[in-house]
Design a protein around this nucleic acid. Structure first.
Length: 555
RNA sequence: GCACCCGUAGUUCAGCUGGAUAGAACGUCGGCUUGCGGAGCCGGAGGUCACAGGUUCGAAUCCUGUCGGGUGUACCA
């Protein structure tokens, strides 16, 4: 619809004035009409003529060539277009089915990225929800989306955990692991990490032992050594960790196609970097680095003096591995803000020898999750906000308001509260206000859908017809429903689910107003109204599904 | 120091490839009983869009500077 208008208006503009001008066709406030264009304002500068006169000429042509209810000139020279009710209604039935603009495209989306052996914190929950929302968006546009998850199964944090773990087991005694109850495994490992971290910082002897362990574990992981005593302990507890991740993701309704543990990309990264030294990377002080200053970035170490690949080199390996596995047309990586600049260095370096991979890669970053009034969190002291704590807070607030609240509503509330803001800044998670019940929230949308469905069920299969005219609240609803494809396109192009949230909330509000003002069942306008309710329900359902929010049967 | 991100009602946020009186939610104050689910709806109060310049017919939006907050800045991830 909007595309056709752009073409039509552009053609009229260039025929009348022989000028190809930049202009926009956009959705104005409802009172101005269905579409507006600023073409007259843009042309007036070039032509040195009064914008209102230009607008008049173009508006006349629009009336001639199009089938509109009205074309008006307003304000400084906007042309406002109102569609005929019939045209509007025709657009509704298919509104909930987005165009498959990504059909046949392979897209890898990497997000969440927790480290095995450590606890899932609020940030992991946040990126999981956002990453999944973005994946759903791409999928809804027909893309073949591969959700993947990267994490450090080797490295200092693992050695710290292992150190404390060995203390507990009384040495390399894998059989002692049987004493850890299945339900307590994840917490127990997280506790070991905290204990190991403290020891590393405060005890020189422990620090030295951890350094040795770190090398050993690296060997075990790279060589898939599952037979040594330490190897047995490593692989078993590592599996516990992944099991814990899987269970958590299942609980929030998210599933990954593949985990990329660091140990599986480290060698590839190291070799790739070495192969491109000294052409791209250079030796410095015994290490291999990329001199970022030539790209206005920082120099970063890719391979340490000891010959071990750093995170940067592993990231290079990961990029190639993902491409090998999925031959992607596009790769999206979502991480915290801190990674922003080092990722630029990684990508800048790779663009020196594999530019096409870099062109296909998009790095998105997000802020931290905070509680209202909370000070900065310190992970060192182990007082970080855990993912389950978010769930508990939401559950508690929700059950206080309605004891029979289901998990689907609680998780939906959390997801919506995370998705409704744009990516980038830190977000405040207010369990009581943001997550629950009233206002711009998940439950509001879920309720708005449940209610509509209830009417549809009650109405049965009545006869339907397209109306000859719409009253004002009917038209508002119809107009809002018809906008969905445009909002979807913007959300997709910007990889921003929050546009969808804003829209769906406005849609639900519009519906609730319509619902308050109009009787549906039993009214003489039943055929038109029930059709609107159905089209509305389809769009809201499609939108919530894209956000990954559960659709309850009742509430 | 340098680089990047951010600063919009009391609070949490939209709006930012320039456009019409800057929107919403929460909170606050005041309303809605004959109806399909009131977890709803309607209305009021509440803003120097951090500050100062600049570009423009037009700036919350673009540019420069200042202030304030966050992050990164060589062998952690």
């Amino acid at each position: 619809m909007i595309k056709e208008l752009v073409t039509l208006i552009g053609r009229i503009g260039s025929r009348l004035y022989g000028e190809r001008s930049e202009f926009e066709v956009f959705r104005p406030e409802e009172k101005f009409g269905d579409f507006s264009t600023n073409i007259a304002l843009k042309l007036s500068g070039k032509l040195g003529r009064n914008p209102k006169e230009i607008a008049k000429d173009i508006a006349d042509k629009l009336v001639e060539q199009g089938d509109f209810a009205s074309v008006d000139i307003a304000g400084p020279g906007f042309i406002n277009i109102t569609l005929k009710d019939r045209t509007l209604l025709e657009a509704l039935s298919g509104a909930h089915r987005p165009e498959k603009t990504l059909a046949g495209k392979s897209i890898v989306v990497e997000y969440s990225d927790p480290n095995p052996f450590k606890v899932l914190h609020a940030g992991h929950l946040y990126t999981s929800v956002v990453g999944d929302g973005i994946s759903n968006l791409l999928e809804a546009a027909g893309g073949k989306v591969h959700r993947v998850n990267y994490g450090g199964d080797v490295g200092l944090h693992v050695a710290k955990t292992a150190w404390a773990l060995l203390e507990y087991l009384g040495g390399e005694k894998p059989e002692e692991l049987d004493n850890v109850k299945p339900a307590e495994r994840a917490d127990w490992l997280a506790g070991c990490y905290v204990k190991g971290t403290i020891a590393y910082d405060e005890d020189e002897k422990a620090k030295a032992e951890i350094a040795v362990l770190n090398k050993k574990i690296y060997e075990i992981a790279i060589n898939r050594d599952k037979s040594s005593l330490l190897g047995k302990i490593y692989w078993r507890t590592r599996a516990w960790s992944y099991d814990y991740f899987d269970k958590f993701y299942a609980r929030i309704g998210i599933a990954f196609e593949k985990y990329y543990p660091e140990s599986t990309v480290a060698e590839l990264g190291r070799k790739t970097v070495e192969k491109n030294t000294p052409e791209i990377y250079s030796k410095s002080d015994g290490a291999i680095v990329y001199e970022g200053e030539k790209d206005d970035l920082h120099t970063r170490v890719f391979i340490t003096r000891e010959g071990l690949p750093t995170y940067e080199a592993k990231e290079v390996g990961l990029l190639f591995k993902k491409h090998k596995d999925y031959d992607f047309d596009r790769s999206i990586v979502i991480t915290a803000n801190e990674q922003s600049q080092y990722m630029q260095v990684v990508l800048a370096s790779v663009s020196g020898f594999a530019p096409s991979l870099v062109e296909k890669t998009t790095h998105l970053t997000h802020g931290m999750v905070k509680l209202p009034g909370a000070k900065k969190m310190s992970s060192r002291k182990g007082n970080i906000l855990k993912a389950v704590e978010i769930l508990e807070l939401a559950e508690e607030s929700s059950k206080r308001l309605n004891p029979s609240t289901t998990e689907g509503v609680i998780i939906g509330a959390i997801k919506y509260s995370f998705l409704k803001s744009g990516l980038g800044g830190d977000i405040i998670f207010d369990a009581k206000e943001s997550v629950n019940i009233e206002g711009n929230s998940g439950p509001y949308l879920q309720y708005a859908l449940v209610r509509a469905r209830s009417i549809i069920n009650k109405a049965g299969n009545g006869e339907q017809s397209s109306a000859d005219g719409l009253d004002s609240s009917e038209r508002s609803l119809a107009r809002k429903i018809s906008i969905y494809p445009e909002v979807f396109t913007v959300a997709l192009e910007e990889l921003s689910p929050h546009h969808l949230c804003t829209y769906l909330y406005e849609l639900a509000q519009t519906f609730n107003r319509f619902y308050e003002a109009n009787r549906i069942i039993g009214d003489e306008r039943f055929p038109v109204r029930i059709k609107l309710v159905q089209d509305y329900a389809h769009v809201l359902e499609s939108g919530l599904k894209t956000l990954g929010i559960d659709i309850p049967e009742k509430m």
